[in-house]
């Protein structure tokens, strides 16, 4: 009597271990994307578009940190500073172009002198007028000072005395005129204030959440990482379906 062949070995089931491993692998990225996605969905409700984030880490990540060191103008009527191309008046960014040269009193306000223009501001900081090449001695301006209640500007040709209405510029003897100078700002609280001001208050929280959602902080790897997570998620779904529809062996 011939022996019957042995029953085939039961097929090894791999869905459950794969499902468990993929579940562990994707739990963090999926939770990340889900939570940030929900936040983005409620940007207006949660006022994320109005909340400004100005933490140094965030500003550094977005390149919104000024380079170099801040400098402050000694002898200016108000706090006038410059940092990485931005001029500040009393800690607030001033709309000027060119490198800061000086700042002199101008009635109740102040006139900020740069290499390429003079911006006259009133006491409230509103622009009275901006003087450019057509209204100033030959540019670039290299110095500014105040002496005997008169304003003096300097260019490559020498010093000019400025009329009270800023319409006339009379060549003046240098005499003992000394141009205002920029000095390094060493006061850390003021530097921190200027850093925040340089970044114009920071970034809207919605922008940061969007970039967290899109994984932009991961650099060029972000796309591949998200591809990997997507494949894992699809695989997770597949193994989940197999587990759902599979007949347990004990029920056969």
């Amino acid at each position: 009597m011939a022996e019957s062949p042995p029953p085939p070995a039961p097929k090894k089931r791999r869905s459950r271990p794969w499902h468990r491993v993929l579940g562990v692998l994707t739990v963090l990225p999926l939770a990340w994307v889900t939570v940030t996605g929900v936040a983005l969905n409620h940007t207006v409700d949660w006022r994320l578009d109005r909340i400004q984030i100005d933490h140094p880490w965030v500003l550094r990540a977005y390149g919104m940190t000024p380079s170099g060191t801040p400098s402050v103008l000694r002898g200016a009527p108000r706090e006038v500073a410059a940092w990485d191309g931005q001029v500040f008046l009393d800690g607030e960014p001033a709309e000027t172009s060119g490198a800061l040269v000086g700042a002199v009193p101008d009635g109740d306000g102040v006139a900020i002198v740069t290499t390429s223009e003079v911006v006259r501001l009133d006491a409230a900081g509103a622009v009275v007028e901006t003087l450019d090449s057509i209204s100033l001695p030959e540019l670039p301006l290299t110095g500014a000072t105040i002496a005997n209640d008169s304003v003096f500007l300097r260019n490559a040709s020498g010093w000019y005395k400025v009329s009270a209405d800023w319409l006339g510029f009379t060549p003046a003897d240098a005499g003992d005129l000394t141009a205002q100078k920029l000095s390094p700002l060493e006061d850390k609280p003021t530097a921190d204030r200027l850093r925040k001001s340089w970044a114009r208050g920071g970034l809207p929280a919605s922008r940061v959440v969007l970039d967290l959602h899109a994984g932009r902080f991961l650099g060029p790897l972000a796309a591949y990482f998200y591809d990997f997570v997507a494949v894992c998620t699809l695989w997770l779904c597949g193994t989940g379906l197999v587990l759902f529809f599979r007949k347990p062996r004990r029920n056969r």
């Binding site: 009133d122 509103a126 622009v127 009275v128 007028e129 901006t130 057509i134 209204s135």
Partner: peptide
Amino acid sequence: YGQKQVRYWAEGGKSAWI
């Protein structure tokens, strides 16, 4: 308008505005 005063130039019955 972004300024509180504006400069101009005039002579010979014509004016220039920049």
